[in-house]
Amino acid sequence: MNKINSNTKSGTFIVTDNQQLSSTYSLLILRPEDDIDLKLADFKAGQFVEVLPPANSTFLRRPISVCNVDETTNTLWLLIRDAGAGTHALNASRPGQKIDIIYPLGHGFSTTLPKASKVLLIGGGVGVAPLIYLGRKLKEAGIEPIFLLGARSKSDLLLLDKFNEIGKVFCSTDDGSFGTPGVVTQNPVINDNYDIMFTCGPMPMMKAVAKVAQQNNVECEVSLENVMGCGLGACLCCVEKTKDEGNVCVCTEGPVFNIKRLLW
């Protein structure tokens, strides 16, 4: 049986700010419409929301990672990469735009860890999004997060200032324009002793990270982004093969999985 979030709701959010990070990336800041009882503290790091892109730009909703929840401003942050009609419309939305969102969805990263845990958070491209909130949650729990962020070049490294506020940051760029040249798995910091590694990014990157984790015998959790229909465990479209249960829904069983459960 699917694991259903009984606290899932749908509601209207209002864009309060849209920070254009580059021609393809933007950071959307949204607050719930006044009459919505939103407990932002209910969001767990690694969960996602199902967004209905504005202006009928898509037929289905789009699953988007929770980048951050800012309790002081009562806002939800979504990092958007312009990758099609829906994300393009989100990217172009201006303050005041109303957006219908189902939240929160899925199961996130393991954040109840021993205080002395050494953790590495590895992100690539737009996949760095959930690591902001995860890093904050870990820090709140007394764990010092270490970030390893990868991108094609310096201009694709997103939210660096935010990451620097939360923990120690290492970077890798394919073209060597910032940090260590090469991909994240070529960065020496990945081979330090960790208790657990968390990763979110392009599939080839996550698979390479998982391989390093397996070789170094380190726990590893990955956040998958399989194509979803509903996000609620109803359509059974976003499945991933697991060792214990065969095909399971990424939306309800994940999106975060321990690699031990996957056929990687």
Binding site: T58, F59, N226, V227, G229, C235, C237, C238, V239, N247
Partner: peptide, 23 residues
């Protein structure tokens, strides 16, 4: 039934194609 392999869904104009396969 395990159903069909992923990918099972794609959005199309005003609709979607699915191939879940009775999981």
């Amino acid at each position: 039934r395990q159903g069909n392999d992923y990918p099972r869904m794609v959005e199309t104009p005003s609709g979607m194609l699915n191939a879940v396969g009775l999981q």
